[in-house]
């Protein structure tokens, strides 16, 4: 049985009302385990949407469906007005170039240096760039995440926070219009988490990106969210701003903010 949604506030707190992502009635199961049971939400242009929920509630699966890493069983996923469930790999790749994805553990390529990690994607998508231009863009994006000095280091030589920043730099090098963050502050100390949260906001302001941020870190959610949705039992249970949800009548929703 699908639980009734407790919509606490409508989705018009966003910066513009043009949705860049619209997920409608999304279903996904793995064997007998139904993870998503009709998830519906949207992200407007320039908006930061934070997705909360217990571990295993399907938050990561939802954003993986958005980039075609996980194939949804049923439902509509409109990104930039195109339903990605109905397109082929080439068309999907054209959309993927416009989306950045920061993985939970940054997923840096172990066998490549930081320079190679950043250049790997850029060289394959901006073939008209000269070697010098590629180098300049790598340096520029490293500077934007405050890590110019690690350009020749290998991922194994970097700390957790540095890896996240380099992962973010790699995500930003193609100047995406949407950025998806899968637990950007998990495993980091409070200060580094705060720095990463500030960096996310800075990037959003600078590049005017729209973002979905999956997190358990309420400080990060408070700092970055324009709007929050909370997943429970495979559906969106609550939706609203941080302040609205914090004062929710629903005890379960409030428990996230304690």
């Amino acid at each position: 049985m699908i639980q009734e949604k407790t919509i606490i506030a409508p989705a018009h707190i966003s910066k513009t009302n043009t949705p860049v992502i619209e997920i409608k009635e999304l279903y996904k199961s793995f064997g007998n385990n139904e993870v998503l049971k009709g998830v519906t939400f949207s992200v407007n242009k320039g908006e930061n949407l934070v997705v909360l929920g217990k571990s295993g509630s399907g938050k990561s699966i939802a954003i993986k469906c958005l980039v075609g890493l996980v194939v949804a069983d049923k439902g509509e996923i409109n990104v930039f007005g195109t339903d990605i469930t109905k397109i082929d790999t080439n068309e999907l790749n054209e959309i993927r170039v416009r989306i950045g994805f920061l993985f939970q553990n940054a997923a840096l390529y172990d066998s490549m240096s930081v320079r190679e990690n950043l250049g790997f994607t850029l060289k394959r998508h901006a073939k008209d760039l000269s070697a010098e231009e590629v180098e300049n863009q790598i340096k520029e994006v490293l500077e934007s995440v405050g890590l110019s000095e690690v350009i020749d280091k290998m991922p194994s030589e970097l700390s957790g926070g540095m890896r996240k920043r380099i992962g973010l730099a790699r995500t930003l090098i193609l100047k995406p219009e949407i950025v998806l963050y899968d637990e950007p502050t998990t495993g980091l100390d409070t200060i580094t988490s705060r720095e990463i949260s500030e960096l996310l906001l800075e990037i959003q302001k600078k590049n005017k990106t729209s973002s979905i941020i999956i997190t358990h870190d309420m400080a990060c959610a408070k700092h970055t969210a324009d709007r929050l949705v909370i997943l429970k039992d495979g559906v969106i249970h609550a939706e609203g701003t941080y302040k609205e949800l914090e004062k929710s009548d629903d005890e379960w929703v409030r428990s996230f903010f304690i």
Partner: peptide
Amino acid sequence: AELGSMKVTEQIDAMEVSAI
């Protein structure tokens, strides 16, 4: 081992979402 490690640390997924 190399590709297995890339798979479990989501490096292969990272390539895929970068349209590579």
